[in-house]
């Protein structure tokens, strides 16, 4: 048993490597923050494009649907590998210049290594598709009468979406979006695969050198410190919405039921 503890919870080892692991976790948090914000925006854009009405709207609607379907169905790790392995080779800065401008093909913006930005791209591409579906559920949960009221007042489809539908939809999907953000945070560890020194790779390297796993355990605990409170907030928001819905069930609340996720990302 003591062997088990020293393998996973060696306090000396942990205190000795704490700042190293924390550095890795700081990279994890930065990757999460950047890709989270971008995925939230990209997902909303995709969801709105997906709702473009009319026959002409097909021109945007179909590519949006195809995109969402494709990237919901491809492993994130594969997307990551495809970007990482392909972009550099396609750079215009090569001996035989490729089609992608070097600043994008080998990005080192804000002093971050290119693995950081490849990771961001893969996470945003994939999570944008996930979140687009969440937003869509929210948009579709806004009662039809809201669109009709907005349109009858002379608003265009775009104006109705922007001012009336989307603001209500977002309120309805805050809990499932937070769930996706939790899942996104955990998936940042995949970027270790392309040598970004985030928390997993730091722990993994230490484990490889010392055969002690405590640095990885420490990384896991750091995840929990952030994800557990977030999961509780999600639960609280869902419970609050359900209370509101039960209370409002007998009135003529035009807001419709909230969109809630029953499973949290931690389950």
């Amino acid at each position: 048993m003591s062997q088990f503890f020293s393998q996973y919870f060696d306090f000396n080892f942990i205190s000795h490597h704490f700042s190293q692991v924390l550095d890795g976790f700081s990279t994890t948090l930065q990757l999460w923050a950047v890709s989270g914000v971008l995925a939230l925006a990209w997902g909303l854009m995709l969801a709105v494009l997906r709702q473009t009405p009319g026959r002409l709207g097909l021109i945007v609607r179909l590519p949006a649907i195809a995109y969402i379907d494709a990237f919901r169905g491809i492993p994130l790790l594969m997307v990551l590998v495809l970007i990482y392995g392909g972009f550099g080779a396609l750079s215009s800065g090569n001996a035989t210049p490729g089609p992608i401008p070097e600043a994008i093909a080998v990005p080192t913006w804000f002093g971050k290594p290119s693995a950081f930005w490849y990771g961001t791209m893969a996470l945003v591409i994939t999570y944008g598709a996930y979140m687009a579906e969440v937003y869509r559920a929210g948009i579709e949960a806004v009662p039809r009468g809201q669109t009709e009221a907005a349109r009858s007042l002379g608003m265009s489809h775009g104006q109705a979406m922007r001012n009336i539908i989307v603001p209500q939809a977002i309120r309805k999907v805050i809990p499932p979006l937070l769930n996706d953000l939790i899942a996104l945070m955990k998936d940042t560890s995949l970027v270790s695969f392309i040598s970004l020194s985030e928390v997993l790779l730091v722990g993994f390297d230490l484990q490889a050198k010392t055969f002690n796993s405590s640095a990885v355990t420490l990384g896991a605990i750091m995840f929990l410190v952030v994800t557990l409170p977030m999961a509780r907030v999600v639960d609280w928001l869902i419970a609050r919405d359900q209370r509101k819905m039960l209370r409002g069930a007998s009135t003529d609340d035009p807001g419709g039921p909230p969109v809630t996720a029953t499973a949290t990302a931690l389950s």
Partner: peptide
């Protein structure tokens, strides 16, 4: 829509 106003059974106010 600029000339005709409509009021609905379910009000449809923006909540």
């Amino acid at each position: 829509r600029r000339r005709v106003g409509m009021v609905f059974q379910q009000f449809n106010l923006f909540p």
